[in-house]
Design a binder for these strands. Structure first.
Lengths: 101, 101
DNA sequence: ATCATAGATAGTTATATCACAATATAATGT
DNA sequence: ACATTATATTGTGATATAACTATCTATGAT
């Protein structure tokens, strides 16, 4: 160690892996969805999420897919409903981050 | 309170205000810059940041501007150098979030 | 005044994301 | 079989972001 004393920077591979997850989550409606789901005990139906978001069905459905693609949410079919829940609780730190702002 | 018990969802105005800050920060190189700056006691010159990032000057400069525009970083000129430092420590929670992943 | 160093900006092309409308699929009830 | 409710997908045009090259500006030294 000569001049530079900082040694444990997060490696680029990790940053490249995680950054898209955060970037995809950092969208107003998707954060709202995440906030809503994390506030509920049980997985919620798309209809309930639409209601909580007050946004058009197609748009909510699209955002749910994006979050599912990033493994932020998971979905399971139950009778004629699909219920979503938070799959990766790490991203909930984003919400804390926002609340503290 | 009838069926819906969740009451304190973060309001949309806040989400719309904060989301872009997070989105702009959630980029591999910009996270690296942030990580580096937060690891150093003192504000750092662009040259030092370039060195830490091992990326071309123009690109680093561009990313610094983006972070400054979002008020994540602040810059001050000192003689013939410009020194950057973390202006908004809230976003450092993103780094924690990543480390825990 | 000229030069070197440090840093910022502009221009460009490719790609990604957005919101929205329209349509499709899936399961259930009659 | 048909209608209904629940959810997903596709297509589109507008806008944003990415990485890169080239150029520009600012400060300080000779």
């Amino acid at each position: 160690m000569t001049t530079n004393s900082a040694c444990s920077l997060i490696d680029m591979e990790t940053l490249e892996r995680i950054a898209p997850i955060i970037r995809h989550t950092a969208h107003p409606l998707r954060l709202r969805i995440l906030d809503f789901l994390s506030s509920q005990e049980e997985p919620q139906t798309v209809t309930a999420i639409i209601e909580a978001c007050k946004s058009p069905q197609a748009i909510v459905s699209q955002q749910l897919r994006i979050l599912k693609d990033q493994n932020v949410l998971s979905a399971r079919r139950e009778r004629n409903h699909v219920k979503y829940s938070v799959a990766n609780s790490n991203v909930l730190l984003l919400l804390d981050c926002i609340r503290r702002h």
